[in-house]
C-alpha cells in the first residue's frame, strides 16, 4: 500500500536474515541458547525496550525525536509504586486516597501520557525543536522522580502488582503478552488507520500536510502523548518485575530505543519506517545481548559490539537507499 513497500520489505528481509544468522550461529556456539526458557527470557528482556520503541517509532516517523521516554518510564514507575504504597495524601483537602493495583496502573499510564502531552504541547505551541523540548522533559521527569521518592527506592509493592512483571498467562510471561498486544495494535494503527496515514504524511512533508488540511499540531501532540503513555507502561513492567521503583530506572533507555528503531530501518528524517521493523530491531538487540552474555563476553565488549551493529545496520540501509535519496 505504501510506495516504499518494496524497499521496506527488502529492508525487513535483511533484518530477518541478520536475525536468523545470529540465531543459527548462537545455537551452535551455546547449548543454552536455543531453549524455550531462553527464548522467553529474551522476549521478557526486550519487552520494556519494545514498549518504548513503539512510541519512539511513531515519534520518529512523524519527523521528531523523544529523549524523555527513559525519564518518563522512571517517573511513571515511581508514581505507581508510591501510590500503591502510600496512597495520595492531599493535606489542603484533608483527604488521603488509597490506590488499588488497577488505580496505580492507570495513574502511571496517565502520568506518562501527561508528560508526553506536555512534550507535544511545548513542541507545537512554542515551536521548540523536539530534541530540545524532550531534553527538557528528560530533566524535569527525572527531577520529579527524585522529589517524589526522596531519592530512595520504593519497595514491597504487593503480590497483585508483581504479577504484571513476573506473572504468566498460558505459559507466556505477562510482559511478553503486553508487548505482543501493543505491537499488534500499533502495527494496525500505522498500517491501516487514518491516524497512521496522517502520521506518515506529517513526517513526509509537514508543510504539504498542513496545506492539505491535516491538523498537524494535533497529530504531533497525539504522537508524543502516546509515546509518553507507552513509556508509562514500560515503567510499570520494570517496577513490577523488580518489586521496587528505583529513582534511576530507565536511565539511558531512550538511546536503546532509538537504536532499536534505527536498526529496524526507520528513517530519522521522518516519513518512513514501520513498527514491524522496530520489533525486529528490538529482537536483534535482545538476541545479541543474550548471546554475548551466554558466551561470557565482557559487558564492556557487549557495548562496543552493540554500537558496531547499529552503525552496520544503518550503513547497509543507506547503501541500499542511496538511489532513492536523490
Amino acid at each position: 500500500m505504501n510506495s516504499a513497500t518494496l524497499s521496506e520489505n527488502l529492508n525487513r528481509f535483511r533484518s530477518l536474515l541478520a536475525l536468523g544468522l545470529m540465531v543459527i550461529a548462537l545455537s551452535f556456539l551455546s547449548e543454552q541458547f536455543l531453549t524455550p526458557e531462553n527464548g522467553f527470557n529474551i522476549l521478557r528482556q526486550i519487552s520494556v525496550n519494545l514498549c518504548l520503541s513503539i512510541g519512539m517509532t511513531l515519534v520518529i516517523v512523524s519527523g521528531g525525536i523523544d529523549l524523555s521516554v527513559g525519564a518518563i518510564l522512571g517517573l511513571a514507575g515511581a508514581v505507581a509504586a508510591g501510590l500503591l504504597k502510600n496512597g495520595l495524601v492531599l493535606p489542603p483537602l484533608g483527604v488521603a486516597l488509597v490506590f488499588t493495583t488497577t488505580g496505580a496502573i492507570l495513574a502511571a499510564v496517565l502520568v506518562g501520557g501527561a508528560a508526553g502531552w506536555i512534550n507535544g504541547f511545548v513542541i507545537t505551541r512554542f515551536r521548540i525543536p523536539p530534541f530540545v523540548a524532550t531534553l527538557g522533559m528528560l530533566s524535569i521527569a527525572r527531577g520529579l522522580t527524585m522529589l517524589w521518592t526522596g531519592g530512595f527506592p520504593v519497595t514491597g509493592l504487593g503480590e497483585s502488582f508483581g504479577k504484571l512483571g513476573t506473572g504468566a498467562f498460558i505459559g507466556v510471561p505477562m510482559p511478553v503478552w503486553i508487548m505482543l498486544v501493543l505491537a499488534g495494535i500499533f502495527v494496525v494503527v500505522t498500517k491501516k488507520a487514518r491516524f497512521g496515514r496522517h502520521l506518515y504524511a506529517v513526517g513526509g512533508n509537514e508543510r504539504a500536510a498542513r496545506l492539505t488540511g491535516l491538523r498537524v499540531n494535533r497529530i504531533k501532540v497525539a504522537v508524543y502523548t502516546l509515546a509518553g503513555a507507552l513509556a508509562g507502561v514500560a515503567g510499570l513492567i520494570v517496577t513490577s518485575r523488580l518489586d521496587s521503583a528505583q529513582p534511576n530506572a530507565g536511565l539511558g533507555y531512550e538511546l536503546d530505543s532509538i537504536a532499536a528503531v534505527v536498526i529496524g530501518g526507520t528513517s530519522l528524517s521522518g516519513g518512513r519506517g514501520t513498527v514491524m521493523g522496530t520489533v525486529l530491531g528490538c529482537l536483534i538487540i535482545g538476541v545479541l545481548n543474550n548471546g554475548l552474555f551466554l558466551l561470557n563476553v565482557s559487558p564492556f565488549w557487549q557495548q562496543v559490539i552493540k554500537g558496531g551493529v547499529i552503525l552496520l545496520a544503518v550503513a547497509i540501509d543507506k547503501m541500499n537507499t542511496k538511489g532513492e535519496d536523490e
Binding site: 510506495s3 506518515y200 504524511a201 513526509g204 504539504a208 496545506l211 518512513r272
Partner: peptide
Amino acid sequence: KRDGLVLPMS
C-alpha cells in the same frame, strides 16, 4: 514539491 505533495507517498 515543497508545499503540495508528500513525496515519499504514492
